[in-house]
């Protein structure tokens, strides 16, 4: 099945993705862009929590700066560092198939995880749980010295 050849092992480096042929400076530039995005992904949510009073707006800012940028960062790593663009199409199909299988699994268990009760079951601990602020009328969350409420559900 395999095409076995007699060749010095070191020559096999030529079987890598030499088609892309980027200089080192290209990868350093990509790394610089990734670092800028890292700064935005940390600063965005920090500013959203401290400056923006509207919870919905703050949530949207966190969503875009943290998770939106994570997706862009991942795309840049896959495209530029893993060279998926010059890889065989077969690899792309393989990875997408795995993502679809993962989506199916999560879609199957999601309804049970996201809900706190169903026809024949109830997650009472999760239903009863109140955030510290809710229970004590705005009392601050416990300091780092104490663990958060160890509620099991």
């Amino acid at each position: 099945m395999s095409d076995t050849a007699h060749a010095p092992a070191s020559n096999d480096a030529a079987h890598g993705h030499d088609a892309h042929g980027h200089p080192d400076s290209f990868y350093i530039r990509i790394w610089g862009i990734l670092l800028v995005m890292l700064v935005i992904s940390v600063a965005g949510p920090e500013l959203a929590h401290r400056v923006v009073s509207n919870e919905t707006v703050a949530f949207i800012i966190v969503l875009f700066t943290a998770f939106g940028i994570a997706i862009v960062k991942a795309y840049m790593v896959v495209k530029n560092f893993m060279h998926i663009g010059v890889e065989k199409k077969y690899v792309g199909y393989l990875l997408v198939t795995m993502l679809i299988l993962m989506g199916l699994m999560l879609g199957g268990v999601g309804p049970d995880v996201l809900r706190h009760e169903g026809h024949r079951w109830v997650n009472q601990a999760a239903k009863d749980y109140k955030l510290p602020g809710d229970a004590e009328h705005g009392a601050p969350h416990e300091a780092h010295g104490e663990p958060a409420s160890p509620v099991k559900h």
Partner: peptide, 28 residues
């Protein structure tokens, strides 16, 4: 010494093919 180079079916070196399969399983 003999080494496995390119797989006929996929057209890529065996080692790289194996790593992609490993990554595929890690995705799940």
């Amino acid at each position: 010494r003999p080494i496995a180079t390119t797989r006929e079916m996929t057209g890529m070196p065996t080692g790289r093919l194996a790593v992609w399969w490993l990554i595929a399983s890690e995705i799940v």
